[in-house]
Design a protein around this nucleic acid. Structure first.
Lengths: 153, 153
DNA sequence: CTAATCTCTCCAGTCGCTAGAGCTTCAAGG
DNA sequence: CCTTGAAGCTCTAGCGACTGGAGAGATTAG
């Protein structure tokens, strides 16, 4: 049986985050000691590692919950897991293409200012000016933040 | 003078979001009609377009506020604008590299399941299994969400 | 004048955490 | 056995960048 701190150390998921996952139903409520502290099985450890990994891959918690609910399922139900993986990969692909466009534009903007500061700033102008970028770098990105900033680890 | 709805139509920024920007100090409080409705100048329209564009490029509102405060400045102060653009470009670059790794892994996961659903699902196993990926696709991405999901536009 | 559309303010919710307050429990050393 | 300090508990609030709804008032077209 593992304490919550032990779980945290082994998976790299912060302690409050573990409690948060329990609250959201991603982890089953842990068993408790007589003093009300959580104690986890190794199965729970595996589950937390699974969640962690899926989060690293950018899956939203809702999708992760779906994957968990599919555990132990067989047959056609499992197509849903496949669909989630594919959808996430496609989201990521679209996002990479989009970010590539943004990068090129930021290049242009950063390059617009190369040291001579006389008149109004070219960088500021470039930020305001949407013309030079072919026009469609808009980020109509659905879904959540792929690869969330979760603090430094 | 433009109504808030007109501003929204012309920039693609939603009405509540415009009010939100005002609240956050990115837009100066608009003039009001006798009936308390906001009326905007064309300068305000330009400013909103600027914000919109910078947001599309993934700049956090704090950075945008800094850029705005630099408007009209000259000389060395403007280096700050340059630094913001470069920093953002670098964040984006790092992020693209990282997302590329994630994409390859999702490819592996999605590929793990190719139709035959007999035993336990390979996709689920692949999500749980961190081994095959060289190990360091972790997303220790600092900074905010580059290219925010702002709903469908 | 009336009906339809806009706009107003305020509040609550989203997502995935993170941090703090103020308290209790646990394990190890003396 | 007692103390000490780390680790745990619950609860609440906050982040960023919005989004949506309620219920009221303003404006505009016919």
């Amino acid at each position: 049986m593992l304490s919550i701190g032990e779980m945290s150390r082994r998976t790299g998921v912060k302690v409050p985050t573990i409690r948060f996952y329990e609250d959201k139903g991603l982890l089953e409520p842990a068993a408790r000691t007589t003093g009300n502290q959580r104690r986890y099985s190794h199965a729970a450890l595996d589950r937390l590692a699974f969640i962690r990994h899926a989060r690293d891959l950018g899956l939203p918690l809702g999708d992760i919950a779906t994957l968990i609910s599919l555990e132990g399922a067989t047959g056609a139900t499992l197509d849903r897991a496949h669909v989630i993986a594919q959808r996430q990969r496609d989201r990521l692909r679209a996002r990479i293409v989009n970010l590539g466009k943004l990068e090129r534009e930021l290049d242009r903007i950063a390059g617009a200012c190369d040291g001579h500061h006389d008149g109004p700033c070219a960088v500021l102008h470039a930020f305001g000016d949407h013309g030079p970028c072919a026009g469609d770098h808009r980020n109509n990105d659905q879904g959540n933040d792929q690869g969330a900033p979760r603090g430094t680890r």
